[in-house]
Each structure stands twice: as C-alpha cells, then as structure tokens.
Simulated scan of single mutants.
Amino acid sequence: MSGSAAVGADIDARAYVQQLQADGPQTLVTNVTSDMLLIEHAGFALPTTVNHGDLGASYVVAPHSAYVLYAREELGLVDLGWLKRPAQVIIALADRLFKALRINTVVLIDNWLLSTNLHGAWHGEGLADIRARLIADYPDHFLGVRSVDRWTDPRLPTALAADGWIMLPSRIIWVTDDLKRDWAARNNVKNDRRKLRQSGLTVEDLTQPSDAEAERIVALYKMLYVEKYSALNPQYSAAWLKLAMACGLLKMRVARDADGQIMAAAGFVVRGDVATNPLLGYDTAQPQAAGLYRIACYMFGDYACAHGLRVNGSAGAGDFKRQRGARSEIEYTAFYARHLPRWRRWPLHLIATLLTVLVMPVMARRML
C-alpha cells in the first residue's frame, strides 16, 4: 500500500453518522439544521444531509447560504471596485430566484459537513440507484453533491453529467499538484518554515485530544473562520471535533508554546492521494508579526508534502495560496432535478451558464 493510501484509510462513516443522529446534528455543529442519514450502496457508505427548506443554516447544508448569503458577506471583505454594484444586483436577483425554486429543499449526498468534501474512492458508482431511492423517499427535494471538481477526481463529474445532473459552479478552489515541486521550493514557504523555527512553538500530531484541547482548537477555529470571516462557516463543537478525529475523518496537527498552550491548529482530511484542510485556526489576539496563520498553513502543507499528497486548498486567500504554488480550479455543486416541475429545474440551467460565463472568470482573475 502506498503512503498516500495508508494515511487516508479507515474513515468510519457509520460511526460518524450514528453519533450525529443520536445527538442531533445541531448539537454537534450548531448552525446545521439538517436531518442526517447514511446511504450504503455498492460497498460505499455516504453520509447524507436532508434539508426541508430552512434558510440561514451553514453553507455546508444550505445552497441558498452558499450562493447568496455567503456571497453577500464576501462583498464586504473584498475590493471589487466598479463591479461591486453589479454584483449586489446579481446576488439580489439570485436571492429571489433561489428562494422561489426552494433550493434549500435538498438532499446532499456524501456530505461530511465540511467546507470541502473529498469523495475518496466513490466516483459515482451506483448513482442511478441512489438517486432513485432518494427520489422515492424525498420526491419534492433537489438532490445534490457538493465539492465536485475535475482536478480532485474527473470521474465523479463525468458520472454526474452522464446521469443528467446540472453542474452549478460554486467556488474557485486552489489546488497543488506536486508539493515537492510546486510548494516546498517556494521562497514564501521557506520563509514560513523559518517563521515556525523562530517562533519557539513545538509542532505535534494530536491523535486523542483531551476535552480542554478540543475546546481550545475549536475556539481557535472560531476566532478565524466564524468571528473574523463568517458565521455561515460550520460552527463546530468540541464534541464534533473529537467525533471526527475518533472516526478517522479528521487528522490534527497543532503548535504549542512553551507552556503547552495550543496557539495554532490545522485539521485536515486525507482521502486517496488528496488532502484538504477544513479546520484551521490560530490565536488571533496575537500580533500579526507572530505569523500564526502562516505557521498553521505550513503545518498542513508539510504533512501533505511528507506523505506525497496532492492538496485541494479549498477557496479563499487566493493570492496567499498562489504564492505558495497553488493554481485555480472551478468547483461545482451538482444538482439533480428531472423529477421536479419544470419551473424548479430549468432556471438552474440558466444560472449555471451565467455563473460559468460571467462570474467564474472574474473570480479567477481576482483570485477570490
């Protein structure tokens, strides 16, 4: 078995879903209001969320939040210049349209409640049978698959398109093909490594966090992704963190100060030969000169490089990631709607075209 296969093996999807069902998803991820189920088919176990139209939940379960609410918040964080007003108009129109379509009445397949789902060895096997079962159980719901892109695995989008799914562009993601070639030799990465060495922090691979450590890691994540960026990011609890690590979903690397306090953390998922880091955090009360964000990112990159992994760096911080060897790709959410009335399905084709032709090129140019 190759090194990359070994580090990404043995995720217990059944235990993960069963605990979410037992406690209630909202207990473990406070802004997730979905029902949780496990689809088992053709040897695959796929965590799946079911939303019944509620608005305002995290974008990991609510397409309206992903395409409208999160986009609206992003306008306040980036400088679009003269494009800001047209963007506001487009988002306002999208808001009305997605609400009319009831886009949040949706079943999302293989949804792990992460900013980026890696689908691992599932390339769409049994797709027709899975959708037939779900349509029978949820005839009024869209079906969806988040985090689909042609770089991570070209077979899944090919299978979805062949089965009649609509590919709706969602984000620009930043990917790195070969970390030894594209990442490790970069001056910015060497500076990040030097910053870590000068910091006096000690890096540790954490496997079984205590309650206090889990609380600290979640607090660091929330400082960055919830308080600084958006409350629409998944709001994990310490109990979710411990569950995700115990099930083998999440790996954790931390940097401690001389007193043992965790100052930065990188939580990442490995499936096959691809890694992504959905949980990153650092003590934002420390001065920027401490370089804790750079250290957190470096810890993840160093792990991926050492294990020969490709990196799906998710969205955001495009310039930072590009300077460290990443390049852009388009990520999609695939929707199945052929069982729904024409007025609910056909607008998605138009939206997909508009996003592909007008929005994604601008986002790629501006590294959003």
Score class of each variant (00 low, 15 high):
residue 278 P to L: 12
residue 301 G to M: 05
residue 302 D to F: 02
residue 323 Q to Y: 01
residue 274 V to T: 14
residue 243 L to G: 01
residue 302 D to N: 08
residue 291 G to P: 01
residue 276 T to R: 07
residue 303 Y to H: 11
residue 306 A to L: 05
residue 307 H to T: 07
residue 276 T to S: 11
residue 286 Q to V: 09
residue 309 L to V: 04
residue 267 G to F: 03
residue 321 K to G: 07
residue 332 Y to V: 06
residue 253 R to F: 00
residue 314 S to Q: 09
residue 291 G to N: 09
residue 285 A to I: 02
residue 310 R to M: 05
residue 258 A to T: 11
residue 313 G to K: 05
residue 269 V to Y: 05
residue 269 V to C: 05
residue 288 Q to P: 02
residue 281 G to H: 02
residue 266 A to K: 04
residue 307 H to K: 11
residue 324 R to V: 12
residue 280 L to S: 13
residue 263 M to E: 14
residue 282 Y to F: 15
residue 297 C to M: 13
residue 250 L to S: 04
residue 256 R to M: 12
residue 296 A to S: 08
residue 313 G to P: 00
residue 256 R to E: 10
residue 253 R to A: 06
residue 285 A to C: 07
residue 279 L to W: 05
residue 284 T to A: 15
residue 256 R to G: 01
residue 253 R to I: 12
residue 249 L to D: 05
residue 263 M to L: 12
residue 272 G to E: 10
residue 290 A to G: 02
residue 299 M to L: 14
residue 285 A to H: 13
residue 317 A to F: 06
residue 270 V to R: 01
residue 309 L to E: 10
residue 276 T to N: 09
residue 332 Y to S: 09
residue 290 A to R: 15
residue 260 G to K: 06
residue 283 D to R: 14
residue 258 A to R: 13
residue 303 Y to N: 08
residue 306 A to H: 03
residue 323 Q to I: 02
residue 306 A to Q: 09
residue 302 D to E: 15
residue 268 F to M: 09
residue 272 G to M: 08
residue 265 A to R: 02
residue 269 V to D: 04
residue 332 Y to D: 07
residue 323 Q to N: 15
residue 236 Y to R: 04
residue 259 D to W: 01
residue 314 S to N: 11
residue 255 A to F: 02
residue 311 V to K: 00
residue 313 G to F: 02
residue 312 N to L: 06
residue 295 I to R: 04
residue 242 K to T: 03
residue 317 A to S: 09
residue 325 G to T: 03
residue 319 D to T: 15
residue 272 G to L: 12
residue 308 G to W: 03
residue 314 S to H: 06
residue 269 V to R: 06
residue 275 A to Q: 07
residue 328 S to P: 00
residue 254 V to F: 03
residue 296 A to C: 07
residue 313 G to L: 08
residue 333 T to S: 11
residue 286 Q to K: 12
residue 304 A to K: 12
residue 327 R to F: 13
residue 327 R to Q: 12
residue 244 A to G: 05
residue 266 A to Y: 02
residue 284 T to N: 05
residue 288 Q to V: 05
residue 281 G to E: 10
residue 300 F to T: 08
residue 238 A to R: 12
residue 298 Y to N: 13
residue 309 L to S: 08
residue 281 G to A: 13
residue 240 W to D: 08
residue 248 G to P: 02
residue 266 A to L: 03
residue 316 G to V: 03
residue 265 A to D: 11
residue 278 P to M: 10
residue 289 A to Q: 14
residue 247 C to R: 14
residue 283 D to Y: 13
residue 239 A to T: 08
residue 253 R to M: 10
residue 277 N to Y: 09
residue 312 N to T: 04
residue 273 D to M: 04
residue 248 G to Y: 09
residue 306 A to V: 04
residue 302 D to H: 06
residue 281 G to W: 00
residue 263 M to G: 00
residue 289 A to R: 15
residue 322 R to F: 02
residue 239 A to I: 07
residue 333 T to L: 07
residue 304 A to F: 06
residue 257 D to T: 01
residue 287 P to W: 06
residue 313 G to H: 04
residue 244 A to D: 07
residue 328 S to K: 04
residue 246 A to H: 12
residue 330 I to P: 00
residue 258 A to D: 15
residue 303 Y to W: 10
residue 286 Q to A: 14
residue 287 P to Q: 15
residue 249 L to S: 06
residue 287 P to C: 12
residue 286 Q to D: 01
residue 272 G to P: 01
residue 265 A to I: 06
residue 258 A to I: 12
residue 279 L to P: 01
residue 279 L to M: 15
residue 236 Y to P: 03
residue 293 Y to R: 10
